[in-house]
């Protein structure tokens, strides 16, 4: 068991998400940085689940945003910390990341200030054992479901840990290949697939959309990331549509959205992410490729994104390359 001593800014229990319920308005949720989270589970011998919007939730872990989270072990366990470097400290020493380590009964692990990236993952051998809600343990705070009571963790919470799948001694010291550890630079290229409504924008605006270095604004959470950037323009709206959606050319009759949907909302670009709304009335020039939603999860206000168009085949090939790394072949045992 784990005892939460400080819940931090927004710490939630997540797995790889709850697919299948967007038709009733429930987004998949799940770890915002799917890759870092799954490597964390891999190192401690857990079920690594699958990509976002799939049907493999895998074991659950803890997503910690930005800073200030403190937890005590109530029994001996093996853990791993992946994703953002939030200066994790155990026994007055910096903890090695991307490595399975022992966390002994009574010890306190703290996360402090962000040195690189935005979201860290704490995985425990055996997984975080909270009840599943519709096939997943992921917390969706707005919908009050999943995790612990559908809310972020707070001090005083006691969390159950499941039964490790392998002896702890076997897990200790397992590391992710050093050269494969991702870095989280302030400037990132984000791959997108154009559409579904790129045709509503002027050609110049689509060029501008792809050329611009979009700055992540302060309004960025698990629902959406708002960007600061130039204004995009539209082709003239036919009169029959003006009558029903109004004069603002970015308004369309509502249609489905998914995590990764880039919406142009009157004057601002918003990328919907893991806790996305499931439908919307704004034109969408492109969709971020699933694996690059992880990059958004590691970005802060002020970071800069450039959107790079790829084909569906290129996106799937890149996804395959990422999936290959989530395997024992990439684990080094010292």
């Amino acid at each position: 068991m784990l005892e939460i001593l400080d819940g931090g800014i927004q710490t939630t229990i997540q797995d790889c998400g709850r697919a299948g319920y967007q038709a009733i308005g429930i987004p998949p949720s799940g770890a915002f940085d799917n890759f870092a989270f799954r490597i964390g589970n891999l190192l401690v011998g857990n079920d690594t689940g699958g990509p976002l919007l799939g049907r493999k939730p895998g074991d659950a872990g803890i997503e910690i945003m930005s800073a200030r989270f403190k937890v005590r072990a109530l029994k001996d366990m093996v853990i791993s910390i992946t994703g953002a470097d939030l200066t994790p400290i155990l026994n007055n020493e910096f903890v090695p990341m991307w490595k399975a380590i022992t966390f002994r009964k009574g010890e306190i692990l703290s996360f402090n200030f962000p040195r690189s990236g935005c979201r860290a993952y704490l995985c425990v051998a055996g997984g975080i054992n909270v009840p599943q809600y519709f096939g997943s343990r992921s917390t969706y705070v707005r919908g009050r479901i999943g995790g612990l009571g559908g809310r972020p963790l707070k001090s005083g919470d006691i969390i159950e840990v499941g039964e490790p799948k392998r002896p702890l001694k076997e897990l200790e010291g397992r590391e992710f290949k050093k050269r494969e550890i991702p870095v989280y630079p302030h400037r990132q290229e984000i791959r997108v697939i154009l559409g579904p409504q790129d045709y509503l924008f002027t050609e110049e605006s689509i060029d501008l959309f792809l050329k611009t270095e979009w700055e992540v604004s302060l309004k960025a959470d698990r629902v959406g990331y708002r960007y600061v950037g130039p204004k995009l323009d539209f082709k003239p709206v036919p009169e029959y549509l003006q009558k029903v959606v109004g004069k603002d050319p970015s308004n369309i009759v509502d249609d489905p959205t998914i995590p990764g949907s880039l919406q142009w909302c009157s004057t601002q670009l918003i990328c919907l992410v893991v806790d996305a709304i499931t439908l919307g009335g704004f034109a969408k020039p492109a969709t971020v490729v699933g694996i690059d939603i992880s990059k958004l999860g590691q970005s802060f206000a002020g970071d800069v994104h450039r959107f790079v168009p790829v084909s569906v085949d290129e996106a799937l090939k890149a996804t395959e390359e990422v999936e290959e790394k989530i395997s024992e072949d990439y684990v080094v045992v010292r």
């Binding site: 154009l194 559409g195 009759v253 998914i258 990764g260 969709t287």
Partner: peptide, 17 residues
């Protein structure tokens, strides 16, 4: 039939409500 990311297709019958 329009692309909505790499593993989703948007099927649209019209653009009016």
């Amino acid at each position: 039939y329009r692309p909505l990311g790499e593993k989703s297709v948007l099927i649209e019958f019209g653009d009016e409500p």
